[in-house]
Design a protein around this nucleic acid. Structure first.
Length: 951
RNA sequence: GCCCAGAUGGUGGAAUUGGUAGACACGAGGGACUUAAAAUCCCUUGGCCUAACAGCCGUACGGGUUCGAGUCCCGUUCCGGGCACCA
């Protein structure tokens, strides 16, 4: 009897053995180099895992196992991002408490993950919703509150330093990140009361309370961060989002804009993600210029990247929210302006996006162009954003399409400044060409005497204007970033509570010793449309408890009960530094110990979806940079290399019902009838052929269905769609594991295509991978089911097949092209099988090679080969080019000055020798001496390819 | 509108980075074994022409560089992703 590949038994056995051996537990080990592999941890959603989820986990698990075999001490942890909107929405929809559903979902996830055979060190698991974890989320927030960002030293510093500065110099000589530029003296500062000082400090803290325009989502009952809003609706649920002015906790992410940008140059991420982040940060170099309001001494500042177009300014525009609006609005225009402001306010973000009509109103005032002395009208329009630059612009309709549209609509003049630019139909926006009309005539130039741009290229003109402006005190060179501060509070229940209480209205941090501040139990955790936080429903005792804890320690001076902050933190709070916690998960004294952090440093390989490009991947980098400034994290960038696995889409199947009947027609014949396509569960379809009996039982209304078949089969149609329950195209990995085994699932997920590419799941091809594993298995057993490994010397052919495979697989794993390794395994298996390879040495190495991909079968065979330890610790084999004839370098050679050769020579011939020999060779034969010609390729013309093999 | 990535058989996808395009797998067709089915194994499978050998055409489209282009350059079309009154 041949020995059967009983994957169910094998996988069960090894799951138990791994648990018993604690094989995946890692500790810091200075004798080995470290390697940190990390997956983006999942939200434990109610639907459980589908086959798309494990894709990235499998890819990283293969890498982790490979690195371990290469001798690294590998950290490969897993945990759950269990606070936040998705978990809470699921709880609300199913009418349960989020804590109940979250923990149940986690258990379900764990069960599913365990079946796939990952090498996670579960002893390091973290859950963001447990107090011993969010202790450190609150702790970091506290630290941010107590810090400001110093621009000149390019780092976060303790707020005490800033207070000291204020006491001594007021706001003089300050170069720090701030919400708005404030100006006060030391005397003023010292005279202010606590409340006022607190308010002023909010302008500088890295975590601060800010009165800002927020994305308010009434349906979700909470505010959302910019990255959580897509096309004017919420990312979760697609509910409408409106702009609302609210007092919110914010993180001063913008302080780190430049460092976030610079850091991108030091990490190995895909170009597209880096590009996305660069766009999101949106650095733009320009000039700030001051304009005087005509007839007054008042000045205001604008920002422009096209300082060279100063002579083409025909009007100015203020954002409707700008504080200047009041100042510039004259009596006669007051009514019109107020009407316009009302109108703007009534429009939601979404309406503004869809309807891009040109709107605006004249303020009645004029600004003086500092270069020409001309008066230009000041307008108010919502095409200028309050939050970017200074909320005011100089409009140059000839060279900016938005200004152009505005000018044409309100009939304002257009003055072209580039030679040959035709602005009769549209503006000329390109930053190229020769400048003219600048200035238009000498007399017009009063204040700006000396600045002549005519004849310059646009680039030269920008530089010249910048120089002139800063030298003459008309403004300054300025870099602006589009990156906004993150809104950090949510009016929801299921999140980290803020470690904040209000002392006489002053937001105050709960002392470090009193952390964590635990989330209280509440009866009603539903969000409200008005924004009243559900934490307000907490029973008094829960809050009292916290207060007592704080007061008993005499850490606050009065025995009064102070109100606590009722907002909770957003989903990204817990996921921003979890990779540090994995290094030292149980530590009650610190987020991570110095020793653990210095050993593991940062994540070497991070695997996850690209949808987090402007969310988690920005926040985490910001958070880590802050901790780096604090000296908590010893590496500035948290994720050295990033791989974005593609999404697995669903492959839906359809049946075609003939209209108004219960008869279904097969795909090939459907054109003859009028039909309606209906989604059919992909689990009752195999290779697009419908299981008719299963279909009849699927739904009661199909029990009596009739079918028009082709070739005796019912063939279904198919389409690629999102994997979702409603499309009946969800494939559960448990089912695959049950039918084919985890090793087949792992192999097939990788075989499906490049890891980084999105692709539909199609169970059809899985048989091929399963067949391969059977063949692989049979390589080791004879007809009687006996292990057929002996100590015979491997043949040259054996070695060639093996080393070809080692080389290919090693290179593929390093490059994450697992999909091309699998064919190599198939070819090698076939070759070794044909060669009737029995050599223990060869078979053992073969097992170690497949171990990262299919650990269960590898363990079983490794044990059968007589090993008592796990294959996880078997050394990764090295290849030797001497066995590889195909491994060659190609080198074009000039032959007799006329003929070119491409010589394919073994790699082990030193490069210098080839070159020397080739260049001096009177004929090619000299290279071929003592070597056997295996293949000669003569391309019509003059090219010869020669493949040689050492004799 | 701007930026990024891509387009190869019926399908998923290979191609040592400028050197015999289509590896490997699926699907399809044919065959062996079997009472039969499953499983397993073998052969064929880009298109056209041919009895066959051979030959010609083929990597979205149009040009170019090169002895030689799926690969490099220029232009066009299409699909995907990101940003978007960001001055």
């Amino acid at each position: 009897m041949a020995k059967e590949y009983n994957f169910r038994e094998i996988e069960k056995k090894w799951h138990e053995r791994w648990a018993e051996w604690q094989i995946y537990r890692v500790t810091e080990d200075a004798s080995k180099p470290k390697f940190y592999v990390l997956n983006m941890f999942p939200y434990p959603s109610g639907a459980g895992l589908h086959v798309g989820h494990p894709l990235g986990y499998i890819a990283s698990d293969i890498y982790a196992r490979y690195k371990r075999q290469k001798g690294y001490n590998v950290l490969n942890p897993m945990g759950y991002d269990s606070y936040g909107l998705p978990a809470e929405q699921y709880a609300i929809q199913t009418g349960q408490h989020p804590e109940t559903t979250t923990f149940r979902n986690i258990d379900r996830y764990r069960e599913q993950l365990d079946k796939i055979g990952f090498s996670f060190d579960w002893s390091r698991e973290v859950r963001t919703c447990t107090p011993d974890y969010y202790h450190w989320t609150q702790w970091a927030f506290r630290k941010m509150f107590d810090s400001f960002y110093c621009n000149s030293c390019r780092k976060a510093c303790p707020i005490e330093e800033l207070v000291k500065h204020f006491e001594e110099q007021g706001s003089e000589n300050l170069d720090v990140a701030q919400s708005e530029e404030l100006s006060f003296t030391a005397e003023e500062w010292n005279a202010w009361d606590e409340k006022k000082k607190s308010d002023v400090l909010m302008n500088y803290r890295l975590a601060f309370l800010g009165e800002t325009m927020v994305n308010w989502c009434p349906a979700l009952g909470t505010v959302l961060a910019n990255d959580e809003v897509i096309d004017g609706v919420s990312e979760r649920g697609g509910y409408p989002v409106e702009q609302k002015r609210m007092r919110q906790w914010c993180l001063r992410v913008s302080a780190y804009s430049q460092r976030l940008l610079d850091g991108l140059e030091t990490i190995q991420w895909s170009e597209s993600i880096k590009e996305t982040q660069k766009n999101w940060i949106g650095r733009s170099e320009g000039t700030e210029m001051r304009f005087r309001i005509s007839g007054t001494d008042e000045e205001f500042t604008i920002f422009t990247t096209r300082a060279d177009t100063i002579f083409g300014v025909t009007f100015m525009v203020l954002a409707p929210e700008s504080e200047l609006v009041k100042k510039v609005t004259v009596e006669e225009q007051k009514e019109a302006v107020e009407e316009y402001l009302k109108q703007v306010k009534a429009r939601t973000e979404r309406e503004r996006m869809i309807d891009k009509r040109v709107t605006g109103v004249f303020s009645g005032s004029y600004a003086v162009n500092p270069f020409t002395g001309e008066d230009v009208p000041i307008w108010i329009s919502d095409y200028v954003l309050a939050g970017y630059g200074t909320g005011a612009i100089m409009a140059v309709p000839a060279h900016d399409s938005r200004d152009y549209a505005f000018a044409r609509h309100f009939n304002l003049p257009v003055i072209p400044l580039i030679e040959g630019a035709d602005v009769s139909k549209e503006s000329y926006d390109a930053k190229e060409g020769i400048v003219t009309n600048s200035p238009r005539n000498r007399e017009a130039q009063t204040a700006g005497e000396g600045l002549v741009l005519n004849g310059m290229t646009v680039k030269e003109a920008i530089a010249a204007t910048k120089k002139y402006v800063s030298e003459h005190g008309l403004g300054r060179v300025k870099v602006n970033y589009r990156l906004r501060d993150a809104i950090f509070s949510r009016q929801r229940y299921w999140g980290e509570p803020f470690p904040v209480y209000y002392k006489q209205g002053i937001p105050t941090m709960i002392p470090e010793e009193c952390l964590p501040l635990e989330l209280p139990q509440v009866e009603n955790f539903l969000p409200t449309e008005t924004g009243e936080p559900p934490l307000g429903n907490a029973k008094i005792w829960a809050w009292d408890e916290v207060n007592r804890k704080v007061t008993d320690k005499a850490l606050i001076d009065e025995k009064t009960v102070f109100p606590l902050e009722l907002f909770t933190m957003p989903g990204f709070a817990g996921s921003s530094a979890y990779y540090l916690r994995y290094m030292d998960p149980g530590n009650p004294k610190a987020l991570v110990s110095k020793e653990a952090d210095e050993y593991w440093k940062n994540v070497d390989l991070y695997v996850g979806g690209s949808e987090h490009a402007t969310g988690h991947l920005i926040y985490s980098r910001f958070w880590n940079k802050f901790l780096y400034d604090l000296g908590v994290s010893c590496v500035e960038e948290p994720f050295q290399k990033l791989i974005n696995q593609g999404m697995i889409q669903g492959r839906s199947n359809f049946v075609y019902r003939i209209k108004e009947t219960n008869t279904f027609v097969s795909l090939g014949l459907k054109e003859q009838y009028e039909t309606t396509p209906i989604h059919v569960d992909v689990n009752i379809v195999k290779n697009d052929v419908l299981d008719i009996e299963a279909f009849k039982q699927w739904r009661p209304e199909y029990a009596t269905a009739e079918f028009i078949l082709e070739d005796g089969k019912y063939v279904c149609g198919w389409a690629v769609e999102k994997m979702s329950k409603s499309m009946f195209n969800v494939v559960n990995p448990d089912v695959i594991v049950e039918n084919y085994g985890a090793d087949t699932l792992r192999l097939y997920e990788m075989f499906l295509g490049p890891v980084e590419q999105s692709k539909p799941w199609d169970t059809n091809g899985i048989d091929g991978c399963h067949r391969f594993l059977k063949k692989f298995w049979m390589l080791f057993w004879d007809k009687e089911g006996q292990l057929q490994a002996d100590d015979s010397k491997p043949t040259a052919e054996n070695m060639k097949s093996l080393h070809k495979l080692i080389k290919k697989v090693s290179a593929d794993i390093e490059e994450f092209s697992y999909n091309t390794s699998i064919p190599a395994f198939m070819v090698a298996t076939t070759e070794l099988s044909q060669q009737r390879c029995r050599s223990r040495r060869v078979l053992e190495q073969l097992v170690t090679l497949i171990a990262p991909f299919c650990p269960h079968i590898a363990e079983e065979l490794w044990e059968a080969l007589g090993h008592e330890t796990s294959v996880c610790d078997a050394a990764w084999p090295e290849w030797d080019d001497k066995y590889l004839v195909e491994s060659v370098v190609k080198m074009p050679v000039q032959f007799n000055g006329k003929v070119r050769f491409t010589l394919e020579l073994p790699v082990d011939m030193p490069k210098e020798e080839i070159e020397k020999a080739a260049l001096s060779a009177p004929d090619a034969a000299r290279h071929l001496e003592g070597q056997q010609v295996v293949k000669t390729i003569v391309v019509p013309g003059r090219i010869i390819n020669i493949v040689v093999k050492p004799a």
